[in-house]
Design a protein around this nucleic acid. Sequence first.
DNA 1: ATTATCTATAGATCTATAGATAATGC
DNA 2: ATTATCTATAGATCTATAGATAATGC
Lengths: 221, 221
Amino acid sequence: MRSPAKRTRDVQTQVKNPDLVDRRRRQIVDAAVQLFIDKGFHRTTTREIARTAGVSIGSLYEYVRKKEDVLYLVCDAIHEEMERGVTEALNRASGGKDALAEVLREYFMVCHRMSDHILLIYQETRTLPSQWRKRVLENEVRITGIFMEVLARLSAAGDLPRMDPSLMELAAHNLTVMGHMWTFRRWFLARHYSIEDYINLQTRFILGLIDNNPGPKDRAL
Amino acid sequence: MRSPAKRTRDVQTQVKNPDLVDRRRRQIVDAAVQLFIDKGFHRTTTREIARTAGVSIGSLYEYVRKKEDVLYLVCDAIHEEMERGVTEALNRASGGKDALAEVLREYFMVCHRMSDHILLIYQETRTLPSQWRKRVLENEVRITGIFMEVLARLSAAGDLPRMDPSLMELAAHNLTVMGHMWTFRRWFLARHYSIEDYINLQTRFILGLIDNNPGPKDRAL
DNA sequence: ATTATCTATAGATCTATAGATAATGC
DNA sequence: ATTATCTATAGATCTATAGATAATGC
């Protein structure tokens, strides 16, 4: 739905050959992602991006119009990977009694893998020109939306208490952000917990909240 | 415990008179906070900070050694205000059956008031030299710690289910971040909910998770 | 002929300091 | 004399482009 070719059109280029544009931009994005993660957007120069990508500074500016264009391409690529990762992860979760726990585990593992990238988006989204910031934020909503669908599916199957749509939507945001939290509080959390601990504890936190049915493990929280 | 005078020592100055240092730095911080919120750290120039603060660029550099010093002073001032706000808010919450709901409401209102400032910290902490980034992150932990004490107090009073310390700590982080979430997802949330809606829904979410006791409102989530 | 790439640099900043000036207190 | 403040600018970047060169395909 959002192929590189589609994204291509957002950012102007002087180069006619679309395949070439895709290929070179991939080089540029790959170089820039790592530089931005290491040094931040503002401390990375366009020359560094060009050099690391293996093109000249002149060529770089054939493929983007401004430095911010590179940031947009980077953010979009990250979200594309996140979306793929989340979709796969959630499909992998098999459903049934522990469905939510499985979903959480799979999602948190994606966040764990993409830690640096998620953090980059938190830090640099504001740097984008508003037109593109809007796009990036739409991507963020779309990913939360995937989550929400899963919750709705579980709820319909009776594996989750029913809740009204507003609460369901907010719950999806909460779970999404809990994954992000592992990335932006990692400086603290990783000192105390492994990713496994984190997943287990957060799962207990959430299930403790959800499992309202009285049972052998009442007050499970 | 962390008076301006104490903080003063972290950042070098050429000026001998400590009161003057406090006063001028307050001017500088007040100017810089707003500029950083509006344009970000990197797009704000030292000259702008000086001009807005009502001092010359030369004077500015009598009170800080580098531009990053200003950012540190700004972050520290924000955390000081947060800490005061959170402490007050949590003391205001009266305890009793709805204690947690009250605590959440008071805390979320602080986050609502300090929305822009919290966001700034998320965005610019990485920009700090590591020595100061560390301090800023310690402040963040301290604020979560206040929260944790409140939870412990409620738990001891029986107004909250007992949980082991790890889970309690993580719960404190979760609640802290839920407040932050209102600031960094505000572009989405505020489109759908008022701050009142947000507080009410989040409270239902949390209480739904916690209130494991079977009762008239079973499956309250 | 057209398309892609490169080198060299114009032009615009921006941080941080040096050195001059004003204000304060003995 | 000492302390605080200011003006003027050195020195170091950095983005983005102009104009030259190389590669490609008719």
